[in-house]
Simulated scan of single mutants.
Amino acid sequence: MTSQSQGIQQLLQAEKRAKDKLEEAKKRKGKRLKQAKEEATAEIDHYRLQREKEFRNKETNVMGSQGNLSSKIEEQTTEAIRNLTSSYHRNMESMMKKLLSTICDISPEIHPNFRPAV
């Protein structure tokens, strides 16, 4: 009977060791999964930051060129206004003289198709 109880004791101890090993394996697996998840999160964050940086660079290039376009358009508009103003001042007096002479200098004439009533 003692050999039976020793056998049972050995089986119980073997079962306990197997449970301990199983628990330890589960803990290691959980630890590895947690570590893999953290590494994946870090890699995702790194990738996200890299893509955002590239996006900002592209956005800056596009917006910068739009800023350049708006400044060029504004510069061209200012130049056109300056040219029109100078042209107006150069030609205003001669145009006013022509307009006044056309309105005020009337030379009455009989129309060539006019037939006096007899």
Rank of each mutant, 00 (worst) to 15 (best):
101 S>W: 04
41 T>S: 07
69 L>S: 13
8 I>R: 08
75 E>D: 13
118 V>F: 11
9 Q>I: 03
103 I>M: 13
87 S>Q: 14
99 L>C: 13
44 I>L: 10
31 K>F: 03
58 K>C: 01
31 K>G: 01
23 E>T: 07
40 A>N: 04
81 I>H: 11
37 K>S: 06
8 I>P: 00
32 R>N: 02
53 K>H: 04
102 T>F: 10
28 R>N: 05
36 A>K: 10
34 K>V: 01
90 R>W: 05
18 A>P: 01
20 D>R: 09
110 I>F: 12
40 A>I: 02
117 A>L: 13
109 E>Y: 07
49 L>F: 00
112 P>L: 10
96 M>D: 10
15 E>W: 03
20 D>P: 00
19 K>Q: 12
85 T>M: 13
71 S>E: 15
27 K>F: 03
40 A>S: 05
97 K>F: 08
91 N>V: 08
55 F>L: 05
34 K>N: 06
110 I>W: 09
78 T>A: 15
23 E>C: 04
29 K>C: 01
28 R>K: 09
116 P>Q: 12
46 H>N: 06
66 Q>A: 13
84 L>M: 14
15 E>N: 08
53 K>T: 04
90 R>Y: 08
24 E>S: 11
83 N>C: 12
75 E>T: 14
24 E>T: 07
102 T>P: 00
99 L>H: 13
91 N>H: 13
25 A>K: 08
97 K>H: 09
27 K>M: 03
14 A>D: 09
90 R>P: 01
106 I>L: 15
24 E>P: 00
46 H>A: 10
6 Q>S: 05
38 E>L: 12
107 S>V: 15
2 T>S: 08
10 Q>Y: 03
101 S>Q: 14
111 H>Y: 09
53 K>N: 04
81 I>T: 14
66 Q>P: 01
83 N>Q: 15
9 Q>E: 05
53 K>V: 00
116 P>E: 14
23 E>S: 07
17 R>P: 00
57 N>I: 03
4 Q>D: 08
33 L>Q: 06
23 E>N: 10
44 I>H: 06
42 A>C: 02
72 K>A: 13
100 L>M: 14
45 D>G: 13
35 Q>E: 09
23 E>F: 03
29 K>A: 06
17 R>A: 11
60 T>F: 05
26 K>Y: 01
24 E>D: 09
42 A>I: 03
62 V>W: 05
34 K>S: 10
74 E>H: 12
2 T>D: 06
46 H>V: 02
83 N>E: 15
38 E>D: 08
84 L>T: 11
67 G>E: 12
40 A>W: 02
89 H>V: 12
13 Q>L: 07
114 F>V: 13
115 R>E: 15
31 K>R: 04
96 M>N: 13
67 G>P: 03
26 K>M: 04
97 K>E: 13
89 H>D: 11
105 D>I: 11
107 S>F: 09
55 F>Y: 06
99 L>W: 08
40 A>Y: 02
42 A>P: 00
48 R>W: 01
94 S>D: 11
